[in-house]
Design a protein around this nucleic acid. Structure first.
Lengths: 341, 341
DNA sequence: CTGAAAGCGCTTACAG
DNA sequence: CTGAAAGCGCTTACAG
């Protein structure tokens, strides 16, 4: 069947060991002549080392997992965020001769299982709630390099990477206030559980307070991150809250649905209501009017996650602190001064 | 370190073999009492079988690859298409206790390498050109189950899954003709090389001919599948081809850019120019006006690919013919009768 | 610079 | 119903 080290060794008239050394680039241990001869045979025969044999014999699998929460029977929901991370991660791993295993996690125990089963060298945790990261235990995680994206968990087992969610909200809400808005709503998904949303909510509250605007709980709505939920929220807002002149949302897709919902009830953006999104996804410029939004640099975030992972894998340990990336406000066409009364 | 079969066997006072049988569900070979005892220990100790050891000893790795073309230094471009397939594939594999390895392919030789290195049981090839599928050889592929998506290659080594590209184009162009259009442009990426685009182009030509409309090469433009290229094309079209009243494009994102480009030059859709997209991606309903487009059921296509793969893996071999899924036209707001002159 | 031995954690026949 | 042996393809010390 497949060509093995043994076959190459036999053909080259050397020992297994020598071929192994050559294949793994330990050149100091083999003469140039032998090396070239072996390399030629390797190439001619199309030899590819068995990764599972290697993984079994060595301590390292050269395998990194990308772990993403998954409903039991549903297929993985892959956000633009996830896509950016997958792309970057795969490329960097490939460059360093690692492989990427993608795994949906329906049940918490599967994290451990995924780690152990293929003896992963590292894993990137994407989209988990802080509490789930908190629960990771050293016994079950072993020495696996763990990077948790968008997590505010304090668990020292995982390196955290996120962008400045508090600051992003500050930027957005300050902008709305500067335009003259006072009745500013907040819309986002379950913000008690997920740290990212909670930080944005805190940014919202903080800026309000700093500007002497009283906090009004009735302006805060829990809306899932989908176009449909945004749309329903927009209709509701138009009907029930004519006093609201601006909305800060935690996601572009939600903002886009919201704008459509407002329009369906005869309210225009930004004429009647201003809307600020979050993410600066591609979508933001495809829609009309183009979306004013908080940009987080997904590519940079993914790159940072990969870099942390690679540093850990290479044993270049770095100060074990969370990395927080900057954000900025992209002013486009959905935020304007409130209508004159 | 990690708990092994041996540890479990020792604790249960049985042989390795017996534990192995229990873990692998070969219950006929073990008494119920022993089985329950072993299962309890397995659970208590948190034993997870080593997949690499298993892969090495058995003939099967329970590993399926998703192979996607990648520019050398660029990160994977993951289309909505790819996302749908990744999600479906991961879920089905997980359900059957397989794992998914994601691999970008910069160079053709890497396909073989990916297959051999981890001893993949199967692989889904996504986004390769027909010629690349054609070149796959039995020697290098071995017995790996191969599914090629959106391929029109005749290579019997791979099972092909695609949707009815010729029919989709027929639907779109017939619709435009029925509305009264005669000067209908075609815009899509490199359509000599990729079978999918070529089939759509053939659909376009065929319908034109069937309706007595002469083929005009100057109406056919090669435009890459990006918003930016669509936009540039739209501007060009508005300036140089006032005679064109309708455009059939091979992708929604391209159509959306095109509409923006036309608008930038003062031409409205569908007032001045009608546009039909392809894919019915989420985007289609987010933009204004909402896009008329050809829907291909990505979920169904992904599901079919997974099903073919699973049947092959399970040895349930099926008639080795390509699967072609249906398409349908979704009429929304970007196609209307041509302007009266 | 090169090699013989042991072992990684499993499964696959084959016995009993 | 249960087990002892061989082997999957590699790497890791350790010798020479």
């Amino acid at each position: 069947m497949a060509v093995t080290l043994k076959d190459i060794a036999a053909e080259a008239g050397v020992s297994l060991m020598t071929v192994s050394n050559v294949v793994n680039g330990k050149q100091a241990r083999v003469s140039a002549a032998t090396r070239d001869r072996i390399l030629r045979i390797v190439k001619d025969r199309g030899y590819v080392p068995s990764a599972s044999a290697r993984s079994l014999a060595a301590k390292s699998s050269r395998l990194v997992g990308l772990l993403v929460p998954a409903e039991d029977e549903a297929s993985l929901t892959i956000s633009p965020h996830t896509v950016a991370v997958i792309g970057m991660l795969e490329r960097e791993l490939r460059r360093l001769d690692y492989h990427l295993m993608l795994r949906g996690i329906a049940d918490r125990a599967e994290i451990t299982e995924a780690l152990k089963s293929w003896n992963l060298d590292g894993a990137v945790l994407l989209g988990f709630q802080d509490a789930e990261i908190d629960r990771l235990k050293a016994e079950t995680v072993g020495g696996v390099a763990l990077v948790a994206m968008d997590s505010y968990s304090e668990n020292p087992l995982a390196l955290e990477v996120r962008s400045d969610d508090f600051g992003g909200a500050e930027l957005a809400v300050s902008h709305l206030i500067a335009l003259g808005h006072k009745r500013i709503a907040f819309a986002g998904p379950g913000f008690s559980a997920t740290g990212v949303v909670r930080r944005r909510f805190e940014g919202y509250r903080t800026v309000l307070a700093a500007n002497g605007i009283g906090y009004d709980e009735s302006l805060v709505s829990r809306v899932e991150t989908t176009h449909a939920d945004g749309l329903a929220y927009g209709r509701r807002l138009a009907r029930e809250r004519p006093d609201v002149t601006a909305v800060f949302t935690t996601a572009d897709i939600l903002a886009i649905g919201l704008i459509e919902g407002l329009a369906a009830e005869g309210r225009s953006v930004p004429g009647d209501v201003s809307v600020v999104g979050y993410d600066d996804s591609d979508l933001a410029v495809y829609v009309t009017p183009k979306l004013t939004t908080v940009a987080q640099d997904l590519t940079a975030k993914a790159a940072e996650a990969v870099r942390l992972m690679m540093d850990r894998l290479a044993g270049r340990d770095r100060p074990d602190e969370a990395t927080t990336l900057g954000v900025r406000l992209i002013e486009r066409d959905t935020a304007a001064p409130p209508p004159r009364r």
